[in-house]
Design a protein around this nucleic acid. Structure first.
Lengths: 329, 329
DNA sequence: CTGAAAGCGCTTACAG
DNA sequence: CTGAAAGCGCTTACAG
């Protein structure tokens, strides 16, 4: 491998000069610069990144730690982060915390030891401590310690779902919430409830019931059954909004069992827009999380290198076949 | 950040000695060693990885390039590779090739520039060139250039599926293959066909038809319909083996449309054991790819640092609800 | 604008 | 067994 010295010799300049053209330093005059460039080309010179790292104490690598890369949402985030980083000539180092706060701690420390230029962490459920780092740390999707959070605007997203449903004429609505111990579950619920409240008037009241569950399929199926079974079509809700796509798909499943037609007799909405949402029958109306923008903003913050406030990015409602106008029964 | 010099001063030894205890060099005598260890502890010393990299010209990082981390199979592979690497104190640098051979090329070069200690590549569909690298490169799942391949034993796996079906009494079987341009599709098909042939005797013949398609849901659904529709239950196959879970799930879908009961009237098998396979109704009998072992073997090869031959790792058949004995119609 | 030189924090022959 | 010293390939004040 040729070194900067070889290039310098070949171009007949000092290594300092080579280094300056390498760093796009404007001070090197045109003729010299060209000779250097030519020499680099000819030798197929590539700077030794380790040497540079030793001097500058930082490498062109972004650390990323996620609870589990196998989770489709996180892998989409990872992909977009990697693309965003690549655009700027950076690589990403990936670590899984397995939803374990200690492992998370260890992984972040290991990344910091490698002198990455910043780390993005999608936190495990519980907390996260402060790290003594002189590079930016940002939390993504789930809050990590004291670091600024980039996340979907869950409150706003739920409100959009509420708008959609009410706009379709629904006046008896059930909301299936996520576990209240999770910030994101609370935000989604609050956004939905608040909007419904503000839309409900004494002339045109909206009935809303809230049912707490977990974010998974089974929870959606169980709670859906509870809401639907036994109730006559005059009393039961005409729409069920779920706090996650998985829950919503569970509701779809139980509606099929109960012979309740969707969307003719019941509208169902999810949240997230996972891949399955577009594959189930009927395809699910949901709120798409702005994954590209989440990733983009997180990466940007690494490069900005300055503390910034939390950022909530608006999602986008995608209307498919699981919602419709309320039938005139 | 304390350096090796600080530790040496505090322990009253030379930096060489500190470096030797760092590298677990046995030559340092007990009393000295302890003093050094104590000093490191006290100062919370962590070696500067960039400096080490500059000297040794290699870092404790494995490069991984996959076509798309968003693909569940690849993300599972990535997770297991990361875990395996972490066990040995290594991190992994992740890159996506987006199924583009040029991008793949670039990504591998970038990884090599960073002096990773090896790179694992799940190749894009077409080929891959040779890289001049003095570190091991291994292809995983899909062959990359001239580098040794670690993959599931597709041939053997398909044969196991054939055994299972024939053991259940099936004698009219249809096989839905993948695109013949792909090595893995050919291997799966050949394994299945060969085993069926060897099991078929003139006394107890087995009828087998083969239908080429793509690996996705729609292809399975379309071909399944072609096979099933119009045929009477006396002439149509009693079992359909698909070359992928996605195809098999497509078959499930069209069987439901056609009111063909599974497994009472038709057995269906897949290949891969994707997460969905255990979620569909009925749950799918399939061949599970040995992901942990694939990842483990690939990582091992990086550390072995010596060229090795291809390795085919046997998968495991997982019998669920989509297969049963042939009904006595 | 360019060169000479120091120095980043390690590892590893080379002595003794 | 341990120390003194060279050197890995860069970057960056400091001169001129």
């Amino acid at each position: 491998m040729p070194t900067i010295k070889d290039v310098a010799r070949k171009a007949g300049v000092s290594v300092g000069t080579v280094s300056r053209v390498l760093s796009k330093n404007e001070s090197v005059k045109q003729p010299l610069k060209e000779r250097v460039l030519a020499a680099m080309q000819e030798l197929d010179y590539k700077p030794n990144l380790a040497a540079r790292a030793l001097r500058t104490n930082s490498i062109d690598v972004i650390g990323l730690v996620v609870p589990d890369i196998t989770n489709p949402f996180f892998s989409q985030l990872a992909k977009n982060i990697e693309m965003e980083a690549a655009k700027r000539g950076h690589s990403v180092m990936l670590a899984n915390s397995h939803d374990d706060a200690d492992a998370e701690q260890t992984q972040i420390a290991a990344l910091l030891d490698r002198a990455v230029c910043g780390v993005i962490v999608v936190a495990t459920s519980d907390g996260g401590q402060t790290h003594k780092a002189d590079v930016p740390i940002v939390s993504l999707d789930r809050r990590f310690g004291p670091y600024p959070l980039v996340a979907t605007d869950h409150f706003d997203g739920s409100a959009r779902i509420a708008d959609h449903l009410v706009g379709l004429g629904h006046r008896r609505i059930a909301y299936i919430a996520g576990p209240q111990s999770m910030e994101v579950a609370r935000q989604r619920q609050e956004g939905f409830v608040a909007r419904i409240k503000s839309l409900s008037t004494s002339d045109d009241p909206i009935m809303l019931t809230v049912h707490e569950g977990h974010f998974d399929y089974d929870s959606g199926e169980d709670i859906g059954r509870e809401i639907l079974k036994g109730a006559s079509s005059e009393t039961r809700p005409t729409a069920i909004a779920a706090a996650s796509d998985q829950q919503a798909i569970g509701v779809l499943r139980c509606a099929r069992d109960l012979k309740i037609a969707i969307p003719a007799d019941l509208s169902v909405t999810g949240f997230d827009d996972i891949a399955l949402a577009a594959l189930v029958v009927p395809r699910l109306t949901t709120l798409r999380q702005p994954i590209e923008r989440l990733a983009g903003s997180a990466v940007e913050r690494i490069f900005a290198r300055e503390a910034a406030a939390d950022e909530a990015i608006a999602g986008e409602i995608v209307v498919r076949e699981s919602t419709g106008t309320v039938s005139s029964s």
